[in-house]
Computed example of a mutant assay.
Amino acid sequence: MKVQRIIDKQELEAAFYIRKIVFVEEQKVPLEDEFDEHDAYADHVLVYYDEKPVGTGRLRIVDNAAKLERICILASHRKYGLGKEIVKSLERMAKERGLAKVKLHGQTHAEHFYKKLGYQTASEIFIEDGIPHILMVKDISEHL
Score class of each variant (00 low, 15 high):
57 G>V: 12
58 R>W: 07
107 Q>H: 10
17 Y>S: 13
102 V>I: 15
24 V>E: 09
86 I>F: 02
118 G>W: 08
122 A>W: 07
56 T>I: 07
36 D>M: 06
140 I>E: 09
94 A>F: 01
7 I>V: 15
118 G>E: 04
114 Y>N: 05
117 L>N: 09
86 I>N: 00
140 I>V: 13
28 K>C: 06
32 E>R: 11
113 F>H: 10
16 F>N: 02
142 E>A: 07
48 Y>M: 05
16 F>E: 12
11 E>K: 11
45 V>T: 12
23 F>S: 00
83 G>W: 04
95 K>V: 03
17 Y>R: 15
29 V>T: 12
144 L>Y: 11
127 I>Q: 07
24 V>R: 06
4 Q>N: 10
17 Y>T: 10
64 N>R: 12
73 I>F: 03
57 G>I: 08
77 H>E: 13
7 I>M: 06
52 K>C: 06
66 A>S: 12
104 L>K: 03
13 E>I: 08
114 Y>D: 02
136 M>S: 05
110 A>R: 04
26 E>T: 07
60 R>A: 08
81 G>H: 04
90 L>H: 00
133 H>A: 03
17 Y>D: 12
33 D>K: 09
78 R>M: 05
99 L>Q: 05
64 N>G: 05
18 I>D: 04
34 E>P: 11
1 M>N: 08
122 A>G: 10
59 L>H: 04
12 L>S: 08
104 L>Y: 03
119 Y>F: 15
31 L>C: 00
42 A>D: 12
128 E>T: 05
57 G>T: 09
45 V>W: 05
21 I>P: 01
14 A>C: 13
2 K>H: 07
